[in-house]
Write a protein that binds this DNA or RNA. Structure first.
Length: 470
DNA sequence: CTATGGCACGGATT
DNA sequence: AATCCGTGCCATAG
């Protein structure tokens, strides 16, 4: 069913293997950078124009017909359609400029973020610094994060790094506070610092963000408590403070359209690397899985370059030849990455279709090792492919791809459910038997841990707030 | 005495 | 080889 036009599916050389592995573990965003630099460095590589399906207007995968329109009618409706989807528009890569901010969108503050910020800080800057600030501000994504590095800016403008740092310092402290940070963590730290000038903040909040960022975003409060050497309740208080007062995405216009459950829910999500939706949004249709290729068009070895090599002068010919080899290697590796991702997602989407459609209760336990065996690849291949990637589910939630391998998520969801519906606070022991009825055998101690993970207080501290459901 | 969190151990997973 | 996760044991709080 996968029409793969290339002969080589098995790495031929160690170079091939190494590069494929590297590419596999990159997110779409990182892949974009990799491709950009490769394209810039190698004249033998060529980007050919994007093809769109004449029928539905979608960008087409590198080869073959439109995966949606040309789908055989007889196709098994339970089998997801998986394909590589070139969508440059998802990324505000290197060439982004002001008009990327839509005018008609939301508050006046976001109508033109760079100008808005620049206005605030311009009075404090000399003219050359103002230019530098403007330059930095054009390298923000829609969450207000830097899409470049300070070192790069400094190099580009031939100024000392310290100067750039000073300007960024100003930018970050302008509204929206934290804008221009490299990542959510940095943004939170800046916000915390600014906040601490006016109000008192929890003593360990900074350490929590600095060292426990991932625990925080995954609601693993017990582990956070452990890390900070405090008790669970204090950890939850800190998390709550952070969730209430700080915003990991300072410039995000609508942040949290798919909010999670109870507590201060914030999740660190980047752009999705994979999109899952339902064909035409019709419930009876199969799932559509798009693996994002952050590129408008297709990469290939430039045939003209290949011809020209015969006329190359003798001293150049070796260089050209190596360019050619590199280019074709790169293209091959890219194809291999896509092929692996496609097979992987095909299998995952098929196995976890119920989860994708009906939620966390339906998640079936799945290990990377198991999948590796089925797909006949090495375990580490699956690991690389899964790590650092984000998936957008049909309901709009963006979750890490690793969630498909979460061994206990379904149990925890049931647990949450039981506690939501309880009429009197149930002890962990009672919860164990409730779960047993649902077919989960877990130890008492484990229930306690799951509770903590979900940020649910122990029985004697739970009261009844039967209402409060949206 | 009961309920729960800390710590640590071992097996599974990455 | 390193890390994660479920579990048992024990101390402590109520």
């Amino acid at each position: 069913m996968l029409q793969t036009h290339y002969q080589v599916l098995r790495p031929l050389t160690t170079a091939h293997l190494a590069q494929t592995m590297t590419l596999l573990s990159l997110t779409a965003e990182e892949l974009r950078q990799q491709i950009d630099s490769e394209l810039a460095a190698n004249p033998a590589l060529e980007l050919i124009e994007e093809r769109r399906c004449p029928n539905c207007g979608r960008p087409l995968p590198p080869r073959g017909p439109c995966p949606i329109c040309s789908r055989p009618v007889s196709l098994d409706p339970d089998e997801p359609i998986v394909f590589i989807s070139p969508r440059e528009d998802f990324y505000t890569g290197s060439g982004m400029s002001q008009e990327d901010y839509p005018e008609d969108n939301t508050s006046p503050a976001t109508e033109d973020l760079p100008a808005f910020v620049l206005r605030q800080i311009a009075p404090e800057l000399e003219k050359p610094d103002r230019l530098l600030a403007a330059y930095i501000l054009t390298h923000l994504d829609e969450d207000g994060f830097l899409t470049t590095t300070l070192a790069e800016v400094a190099r580009y403008h031939h100024v000392p790094l310290s100067q750039v740092e000073a300007i960024l310092h100003l930018i970050q402290r302008a509204e929206p506070v934290g804008v221009g940070s490299a990542n959510p963590q940095e943004a939170l730290l800046v916000q915390l610092e600014v906040l601490s000038e006016t109000v008192t903040v929890p003593a360990l909040a900074e350490q929590a963000i600095r060292e426990g960022m991932d625990l925080l975003s995954r609601h693993q409060y017990s582990d956070l408590a452990h890390l900070l050497k405090i008790n669970l309740r204090q950890a939850q208080e800190i998390a709550r403070f952070i969730g209430d007062n700080l915003n990991p995405f300072p410039a995000r216009s609508h942040w949290g359209d798919a909010r999670a459950h109870s507590s201060p829910a914030f999740q660190v999500y980047n752009h999705p690397d994979i999109l899952i939706s339902r064909l035409n949004d019709r419930p009876e249709n199969p799932l559509v899985v798009e693996i994002i290729m952050p590129l408008a068009g297709t990469l290939r070895v430039n045939p003209l370059f290949r011809q020209a090599i015969h006329q190359a002068s003798n001293e150049k010919v070796d260089d050209w030849k190596s360019d050619l080899d590199r280019a074709s290697l790169f293209v091959k590796c890219l194809q291999q990455r896509n092929h692996t991702m496609q097979r992987l997602m095909q299998r995952i989407a098929s196995l976890q279709a119920q989860f994708i459609l009906y939620g966390e209760k339906q998640l079936i336990p799945l290990t990377r090792a198991q999948l590796a065996e089925e797909l006949e690849v090495h375990e580490s291949t699956i690991s690389r492919a899964v790590s650092n990637k984000a998936v957008q589910l049909p309901n709009g939630r963006i979750v890490p791809l690793s969630m498909f391998f979460d061994r206990s998520l379904n149990v925890r969801t049931f647990l949450r459910n039981i506690i939501d519906m309880e009429t009197r606070p149930l002890s962990d022991m009672e919860l164990v038997s409730m779960l047993a009825e649902k077919g989960f055998s877990v130890a008492r101690r484990t229930v306690a841990k799951y509770r903590a993970m979900e940020g649910i207080l122990p029985a004697h501290l739970r009261h009844h707030h039967a209402m409060a459901h949206a």
